[in-house]
Nucleic acid binder design. Structure first.
Length: 506
RNA sequence: GGCGACGUAGCCAAGUGGUAAGGCGGAGCUCUGCAAAAGCUCUAUUCCCCAGUUCGAAUCUGGGCGUCGCCUCCA
């Protein structure tokens, strides 16, 4: 088996092979940082991150470009509202986005070009389009002439007659045909502008991607990706611009990720019906979000629900604890050949699933099967191989088998851990205790713990220690009272042979 | 209105001609001072409905019904 991918351009699943040598050149349409990134962006970029990791696994060299469209009408408008320069707006949203990508373990692209860094290349492309009469200059800017490109609509499966039905020319636009779109917009007073042969202004949406693809990868390149909503008009327009100047196809394979919906509706800037990604990551384990996304095929629309996120967290813990168990499994006599044989079915199924148009859902199911079999694998002496494979597989999916993130605030008897945890709670988690939780703790525990000890989050530590003492003295009635008291306050205790851990309930 | 997806257990979801993966949830058991965690077992005679093709269909064809997306900024 080898990798097969669905190609939006041909509407079929095709065997994948790089166009040139061993290098896979990928361009993914990145963020337009004119609003907060949301989970839909996370889903899309995370998928292409997994694709990239898989290419590397398969032995390809990957040149992965993900652009930033750092100039658009919306950021200009917001800058004006807030009375700050437009690029301040862009930088803020972009910085937040990058932090979120880090938390999601999305590897930085090899190159992350910004539209405003490629103004010269954009102008050169527009100039060439004008020269070949695919573009024309009018009073408010330079437009691409859609009638000059007969194949227009091929990618999105539309014809220009259908498109014309709903098309209108907005007031102030001087384009000749309703389907024509702006390559360069002349600046109105107070708007950001770069000089051009036709008048100061800024690039229209679409041309920046054509220009950066051409400058950084060259046509044809292997894969052009993005969200499903980019097929029309964005990618259609990119194709029209680029293929008016170079022989088709602009890109060999076009890949589009299904959109994430929230509450049965798509998330969008105009609807504003989403929670910023950054906030979602504060409330949930980023790796659980990854796992959740991977359990649905990348091309399918996906409806997100809060309960699903909680479920994914549970699933993630299972995989991680299976990994822990495999690593700690005592070594038993075994032979290398048998060990490999035991793992082979899992490996084959896992990679066959990924080969099948990145069926991550199928691949993840193999990992759960492996987790379920981990005891018998360990008994057969295959623990170390199983652990190694689980590590490899999870890493391919961008999920760390070991890392427990933010939300699991727990501690052991180790006082250093207690100290750092108390600090964490004090810094960011006190509100998790609920408004009157400390008051309730005082009331419930006043007779057991000196009231002055219940003044801060450190109180939890004091209670935990008191309970450990009670347990060591076999005073289980008191130990239970303490457990229940903390439970009332929203703190759950867990005993294990390594000590007592606690978590703050959400 | 035009175009395109999709409809699988309580929820999420894979599977696209050979007799229903997996996750969450739920139930039972093991372990445990208690409570968890973890492990084990069970949890769809059936894939929106109807008709057809076939030895055989969740998978193909036709017709319904329903949901969503694109056609305007969008990952």
């Amino acid at each position: 088996m080898s990798l097969r991918l669905y190609n939006s351009r041909t509407r079929t699943i095709e065997p994948f092979a790089p166009l040139e040598g061993n290098t896979v050149r990928v361009y993914v349409c990145g963020l337009t940082p004119s609003a907060q990134a949301h989970l839909g962006h996370a889903r899309s970029f995370m998928f292409f991150d997994v694709l990239r990791r898989y290419f590397v696994h398969l032995g390809y060299r990957v040149d992965f470009v993900r652009n930033v469209t750092d100039i658009d009408d919306r950021s200009i408008a917001e800058g004006r509202e807030r009375d700050v320069p437009w690029h301040v707006v862009v930088d803020e949203y972009f910085a937040t986005f990058k932090r979120s990508m880090d938390r999601l373990h999305v590897i930085d692209p090899d190159r992350e070009p910004r539209a405003t860094q490629y103004i010269a290349e954009i102008l050169a492309m527009i100039e060439a389009l004008i020269e070949k009469e695919h573009a024309y200059v009018v009073g408010d800017g330079v437009y691409f002439s859609v009638p000059s490109f007969p194949r227009y609509g091929a990618l999105s499966g539309r014809n220009t007659d259908e498109l014309l039905i709903g098309a209108r020319i907005a007031p102030g636009e001087e384009k000749r045909d309703p389907l024509d779109f702006a390559l360069w917009k002349f600046a109105k007073p107070g708007e950001p502008a770069w000089p051009s042969p036709w008048g100061d202004g800024r690039p229209g949406w679409h041309i920046e991607c054509s220009a950066m693809c051409h400058a950084l990868l060259g046509e044809p390149f292997d894969i052009h990706g993005g969200g499903y909503d980019l097929i029309f008009p964005h990618h259609e327009n990119e194709i029209a611009q680029t293929e008016s100047l170079v022989p088709p196809p602009m890109a060999n394979v076009w890949m589009h990720g299904g959109l994430l919906q929230f509450d049965g509706k798509k998330m969008s800037k105009s609807l504003g019906n989403f929670e910023p990604l950054y906030d979602v990551l504060d409330r949930n384990d980023p790796q659980a979000i990854r796992l959740l996304f991977l359990q649905t095929g990348y091309r399918k629309p996906m409806n997100l629900m809060e309960e699903s996120l909680a479920g994914a967290t549970t699933g993630l813990r299972r995989l991680q604890s299976a990994y822990d168990a495999l690593r700690k499994a005592p070594t038993v006599p075994h032979d290398e050949g048998a060990e490999r044989a035991a793992l082979e079915p899992f490996e084959m199924r896992f990679f066959a699933a990924l080969d099948d148009d990145m069926n991550t859902s199928g691949a993840v199911s193999v990992l759960f099967d492996l987790a379920a079999e981990s005891e018998s694998l360990a008994a057969a002496g295959a623990a170390s191989h199983a652990a190694a494979f689980l590590h490899q597989a999870m890493s391919l999916l961008g999920i760390s088998p070991a890392e427990r993130t933010v939300h699991e605030r727990s501690l052991t008897q180790d006082t250093r851990t207690i100290g750092s945890l108390a600090y964490t709670i004090r810094r960011s988690g006190a509100e998790h205790l609920g408004g009157d939780a400390l008051e309730r703790l005082r009331r419930l525990l006043g007779e057991i713990i000196p009231p002055h000890a219940i003044a801060a989050p450190d109180a939890i530590d004091a209670i935990v220690e008191a309970r450990i003492k009670a347990k060591s003295e076999k005073d289980f009635a008191l130990a239970d009272r303490l457990r229940h008291a903390l439970s009332e306050a929203g703190v759950t205790l867990s005993d294990s042979k390594d000590g007592t851990t606690w978590t703050v309930d959400d």
